[in-house]
Write a protein that binds this DNA or RNA. Structure first.
Length: 565
RNA sequence: GCGCUAGUGGCUCAAUGGAUAGAGCAUCAGACUUCGGAUCUGAGGGUUAGAGGUUCGAGUCCUCUCUGGCGUACCA
């Protein structure tokens, strides 16, 4: 349920009665609790438009909306703010609807779009490293979110499986024959060995160069080697996805090489649209006011990643029928996407009203504020990072002991992976963020563990109660009112997160919700003997609904919950 | 050089052009015969890098300055 739009409707109705048309009211959450649940700030801007004093407009609005049954109280404040308190009964009724709904009363889009989410995109020549973390989990979150809200989501893993490096790798693969099986287990090392041979052995280097050409011209032997290599590398990625709990599968892979046949067509179409300029022998697209062009074909006739990206934009429109495309890629490629999106529209590869979004994100830093590296300056393997997270989570919870090994393992995985993901998703994606084990695995503050713990506490209460939860929700105190209104705001939060593609709106919400629940829990005993049945049931309902929202909210982020920590 | 981006308490981060800029960590002070205290309550701590401007109203928009990060044509 979109609670804000319900209130907006009430305000708009009032404005209409005042003779104000073509103005769309937008309320916001009250900035302070003493200002109520929501506030409408539009009276000030309306003042100029219709030539009345803001206070006068505000007081008229207050008078009109006060009569509405969903409003408990409306007040004018300051220069013309309208502060709004919701009726407790309205809140409880809607909470009950939410409780009974199969999907927490989240409004499903009645005009679903087909959204492509392009994320993860590892290079097959190397093992996934920490640099792939953000794209993978932000992208997966957005895909989950869009899906939940009723859109048709097509996940696209645009893996790098084409390029000069592969000649060297498959030549080395062939060289090693049967031994290669073991060496491929450590892809990073395999690359290093191949590179070492390439640098030291001239004959091998020639063969590597020859093999690049051979794969590209469709040589069967080389393609078979290449296939084997890509298959192995991809299965490494799948292990990481599995460990990380993201939903990417083989089905979502559409590799760079899949566009090979389209590349000449792309050049042809660009040419026919007069978008190509030859510069220094290369085919370029110059965007107005941008100094450096996109190069789509090299002097030697070779294509580049920009060509493939354009082919992908074209494919996603023509074959996938997508009208919104989200590219979850490092912020440093901002300029590239700006040009790419412009060119694809100019060329007619995508429709003019297609939403093309570069979901940019910043870099992961270590405690000293430098890009995250190993002690000797190398890249940190993603798989190793996740293993460490699980290990550290185990240490954190071991103190309380009493777990059998299997439970401990499962818990550590849920908590460790959850901590890594939450830490990443809870900061505004566009800024760089400092990676800190201690902070992310803390029970205190805005962490996954704090929220997971609250969830476990609720489950503990529910199981202790041990009976069917039924009866009405009765809002009986200010804290219950705030908790209720916050629960009702779930859908609005998701809508906003969807619109701006901002996962941290969801984490902020969940943290606020959890904090409110903890306060409620302190103030409102549930299972104590002196609590009457109706109150007990109402509070159990609130607790249960809070748990459901937490579980669903975390699920969007790809984070699991457990019943006991 | 040009372009992009950021600068918010000691630290890590929020803030949809709206009221007295909010959280957490850390610090200090409280609350336990615990419905799971791995919790909760409270306090101190800010000229939002600086200077102008737009606006009824600016951390947010515009201009300039300072400082940092990044990108700058045949790699992806």
């Amino acid at each position: 349920m979109k609670i804000k739009s319900q209130i907006n409707t009430v305000i708009n109705q009032a404005l209409l009665e005042m003779g104000i048309v073509d103005y769309d009211a937008v309320i916001s959450e009250a900035t302070r609790i003493e200002f109520g649940d929501f506030q409408f700030n539009g009276a000030m801007s309306l003042a100029k438009k219709i030539g009345k004093k803001p206070q006068e407009i505000a007081s008229q609005i207050v008078e009109l909306i006060s009569q509405n049954s969903i409003i408990a109280k409306a007040q004018i404040a300051g220069p013309g703010f309208v502060n709004i308190w919701l009726n407790d009964e309205f809140v409880s009724n809607n909470l009950e609807i939410m409780t009974k709904s199969i999907n927490l009363d989240i409004a499903i889009s009645c005009t679903p779009q087909t959204i492509v989410v392009d994320y993860s995109g590892p290079n097959m020549a190397k093992e996934m490293h920490v640099g792939h973390l953000r794209s993978t989990i932000i992208g997966d979150t957005l895909a989950n979110l869009f899906e939940l809200m009723g859109d048709i989501v097509i996940r696209q893993n645009h893996i790098g499986d084409w390029g000069t490096g592969f000649g060297m790798l498959i030549a080395y693969l062939e060289d090693k024959g049967d031994e290669s099986h073991d060496e491929l287990k450590d892809l990073e090392n395999f690359y290093k060995l191949a590179k070492a041979k390439f640098d030291s052995d001239a004959l091998f280097a020639d063969k590597a160069r020859e093999y690049v050409v051979k794969i590209q011209s469709g040589d069967e032997h080389c393609l078979a080697l290449w296939d084997k290599f890509i298959g192995t590398s991809l299965s490494h990625c799948e292990e990481v996805y599995e460990k990380l709990g993201v939903k990417l599968t083989k089905e979502d892979v559409r590799a760079e090489s899949a566009y090979n046949d389209d590349l000449p067509v792309v050049i042809e179409e660009l040419t026919s649209k007069n978008l190509i300029t030859i510069s220094d022998g290369a085919k370029c697209i110059f965007m107005p006011d941008v100094e450096t062009p996109i190069i789509v074909q090299k002097r030697d006739g070779g294509y580049l990643y920009a060509t493939t990206d354009l082919a992908a934009l074209r494919y996603r429109t023509k074959s996938l029928d997508s009208t919104r495309m989200c590219y979850v890629v490092d912020a440093r490629q901002g300029e590239h996407f700006k040009q790419m999106f412009w060119a694809s529209k100019e060329a007619g590869f995508v429709q003019s009203d297609t939403k093309l979004e570069h979901i940019a994100f910043g870099t992961m830093m270590d405690a000293s504020g430098k890009p995250f590296k190993t002690r000797d300056g190398g890249t940190v393997k993603l798989s190793a990072l996740l293993d460490e997270a699980i290990e550290r989570a185990k240490e954190t919870i071991k103190a309380k002991d009493g777990y059998d090994p299997a439970t401990l393992e499962h818990l550590a995985r849920v908590i460790g992976i959850g901590a890594v993901k939450y830490a990443d998703l809870s900061v505004s994606r566009e800024s760089n963020y400092i990676f800190s084990w201690d902070k992310m695995l803390s029970f205190d503050g805005n962490t996954a563990l704090y929220i997971q713990y609250a969830y476990a506490r609720i489950q503990s209460i529910i199981s202790r109660f041990g009976d069917e939860i039924s009866g009405d929700i009765i809002i009986a105190s200010p804290i219950e009112h705030r908790l209720g209104v916050t629960l009702l705001g779930f859908d609005d939060t998701l809508t906003r997160a969807n619109l701006d593609a901002m996962p941290h709106y969801i984490t902020s919400y969940l943290y606020d919700l959890t904090t409110l629940f903890m306060q409620f829990y302190e103030l409102s005993p549930i299972l104590k003997d002196d609590v009457d049945v109706a109150t007990k049931m109402s509070r159990l309902q609130l607790a249960n609904l809070t748990a459901k929202v937490i579980k669903q909210g975390l699920a969007i982020l790809g984070i699991e919950v457990v019943n006991k920590i």
